[in-house]
Amino acid sequence: MKRFLLIFLGGIVVSLPTWSQNEKIKVTVLYTGTASPLEGSTIQGGSWFKKFPMVHPAFLIEHPKGNFLFDTGLGKTAKTQVQDMPWWARLATRFEQEETAVDQLKNLNIKPERIIVSHVHYDHVSGLADMPEVPVEILPQELEFTKIKGASPAVFPSLFSDKTPWKTYELERKEYEGYSKSRDIFGDGSLVLVGMPGHTPGSVGLFINISNKKRAFLVGDTVWNSEALNNGLPKFWLSRKFADTNSDEVLERIKELQALHKKYPELLIVPSHDAKAVAAFVDLMKL
């Protein structure tokens, strides 16, 4: 649970946030695929002469009160699923598959109790079809987004079925780290969802608070490239038209992330597809 530590500096009382230690939380990154687009396609002003390493992860979160997947990455039928995309979108989203999340979970002898999706683009929910019995938690506006024909070339019918076990939830009107709405998943401040609309209407990010020195923020696809946060830059204009539902809102989210980083420079902000950022997250979770 988030608490506050009062200290005296030159006669001035300063309030600093502190966190309960919860080292029993375990986080495992399940890599399900990779991609190597030109950097220029991932960020405004990026190079068109070098490739940018991207990954397609799912995040397994194990907490003393239960476990869940945050996104699924690419599933067993990903190559077939994307045939529903327009041809130009398929050309722009080429990927190499690795072992699926469901197979990696089987090797770990773990069955997820639920899946929480950051958003419903194919590379984050493709694996839902591999785990049809697992409840899928989603904001109502994001579920509605799946039903709007042509709303996004990255959302298409083969990703879902009439039997997908959706479970909608609402964020509470509780401010958290500058975000007006949040959801404390287990009630102890260790895993907190916040609303991040823009990339899609119901995108969410996940704060992971294990200790004062072991904090991370999974921000989905608000940005693809961590350099976007450093420089306040959006995706390349064509990528924005393809991927972002509301580009103006995405810019607001980027500003929020910059302010957050300034306030907590030790907080690791993790765009889901930035291979370097995800590797740094893996290293942090091992500490």
Results as ranks from 00 to 15, higher is better:
155 V>F: 10
140 P>Y: 13
137 E>C: 11
154 A>N: 14
140 P>M: 13
157 P>E: 10
173 R>S: 05
174 K>W: 02
123 D>A: 01
120 V>M: 06
121 H>N: 15
130 D>L: 12
144 E>N: 15
118 S>E: 12
142 E>T: 01
145 F>D: 10
167 K>N: 11
139 L>D: 08
164 T>M: 12
173 R>H: 00
176 Y>L: 00
177 E>K: 07
166 W>K: 11
123 D>K: 02
139 L>M: 12
183 R>M: 01
165 P>C: 10
115 I>Y: 05
155 V>K: 08
125 V>A: 10
151 A>D: 01
137 E>S: 10
117 V>D: 02
123 D>L: 06
167 K>F: 09
160 F>V: 09
135 P>L: 10
131 M>N: 01
141 Q>Y: 15
163 K>F: 11
146 T>D: 04
174 K>G: 02
160 F>G: 04
178 G>C: 03
145 F>Y: 15
117 V>C: 08
170 E>S: 04
168 T>C: 08
119 H>T: 11
131 M>F: 06
154 A>I: 14
150 G>S: 07
125 V>T: 11
165 P>M: 12
134 V>P: 04
176 Y>F: 09
151 A>Q: 09
167 K>L: 11
174 K>Y: 00
126 S>N: 11
145 F>L: 10
124 H>E: 09
122 Y>I: 02
158 S>F: 00
133 E>K: 10
133 E>L: 05
166 W>V: 08
148 I>Y: 07
167 K>Y: 09
168 T>K: 05
170 E>A: 07
155 V>H: 09
174 K>L: 04
160 F>M: 09
173 R>A: 01
166 W>I: 11
143 L>K: 15
125 V>I: 13
134 V>Q: 05
120 V>R: 03
141 Q>V: 15
130 D>C: 12
151 A>P: 06
153 P>T: 05
126 S>K: 12
136 V>E: 11
178 G>N: 01
163 K>W: 12
127 G>Y: 03
151 A>I: 15
166 W>D: 08
152 S>E: 03
136 V>D: 10
133 E>D: 09
135 P>E: 08
134 V>C: 05
174 K>Q: 08
155 V>N: 12
181 K>G: 00
172 E>P: 07
148 I>M: 12
121 H>T: 15
183 R>I: 02
138 I>H: 02
156 F>A: 00
173 R>W: 00
126 S>D: 13
183 R>K: 08
154 A>W: 15
122 Y>L: 03
169 Y>F: 13
132 P>R: 07
161 S>T: 14
121 H>E: 15
137 E>D: 10
182 S>A: 02
139 L>G: 06
117 V>R: 04
138 I>Y: 04
118 S>K: 13
137 E>H: 14
160 F>R: 07
164 T>V: 12
179 Y>T: 01
163 K>R: 11
151 A>N: 06
148 I>T: 14
163 K>V: 08
180 S>A: 01
137 E>F: 14
117 V>H: 05
169 Y>P: 00
